[in-house]
Simulated scan of single mutants.
Amino acid sequence: MGDRRELKIGDLTIRHPYVLAPMAGVTDLPFRLLCKEQGAGLLCMEMVSAKALQYKNKNTKALLSIHPEEYPVSLQLFGSEPDVISEQAKALEELPFQILDINMGCPVPKVVKNGEGSALMKQPRLVHEIVSRTVKATRKPVTVKIRKGFDDTCVNAVEIARIIEDAGAAAVAVHGRTREQYYSGKADWDIIRQVKEAVRIPVIGNGDVTCVQDALHMMEQTGCDGVMIGRGARGNPWIFRELKCYDETGRIPPRPEIGEIREMMLRHARLQVKYKGEYSGIREMRGHVSWYTRGLRGSARLREEINKVETYQELEELLQEKLM
Rank of each mutant, 00 (worst) to 15 (best):
F31Q: 00
W238P: 00
P82F: 03
L29C: 08
I306A: 01
L33T: 02
A89W: 00
K186A: 15
I99K: 12
R301T: 10
P82S: 12
Q54P: 03
E316V: 00
R200W: 13
R303F: 00
A169S: 08
A40M: 09
G176A: 11
P72G: 10
S65I: 11
M228K: 05
A91T: 03
P237Y: 04
I160Y: 14
L323N: 00
K113T: 06
I204E: 00
K51E: 13
G117A: 11
R283I: 07
A89P: 05
Q123K: 15
G207H: 02
I192W: 12
V26W: 01
S80H: 12
E321R: 13
A161R: 02
I258F: 00
G281T: 04
E94T: 05
Y182C: 12
K308S: 11
Q38C: 14
Y55F: 13
P202T: 08
G105T: 07
K244E: 10
W291Y: 15
G298C: 02
Q320N: 12
N307H: 14
R241I: 03
D247R: 12
P109W: 04
Q88A: 10
R4N: 09
S49E: 08
K90G: 04
E284Q: 12
W189F: 11
R15W: 06
Q98H: 14
P17Q: 09
H217W: 15
T60E: 14
Q76T: 05
P30N: 06
C224D: 04
L216M: 10
T134K: 01
S184D: 12
R262G: 09
Y279L: 13
I252P: 07
N206M: 13
I85E: 03
Q213R: 12
A170M: 04
L126V: 02
D152M: 14
F31C: 05
I258G: 09
K145M: 14
W189C: 13
C245Y: 12
V174M: 03
L92Q: 06
I239V: 15
R179K: 15
G168Y: 06
R193I: 08
M228R: 04
Y275W: 06
C106T: 07
G277Q: 02
P124D: 07
E6F: 06
K186G: 14
Y182D: 11
A300M: 10
K110A: 03
S299V: 00
Q98A: 12
G149Y: 07
Y71P: 03
G250F: 08
P237G: 06
I85T: 06
G41T: 04
D151C: 12
Y279G: 09
A170W: 02
C35E: 01
K61I: 08
I14W: 11
G235E: 02
G10L: 07
D166H: 08
L92R: 09
V209E: 00
E316C: 02
Y246P: 02
R297W: 01
L216I: 10
R179V: 06
M121L: 15
E37V: 04
E81L: 11
A233K: 01
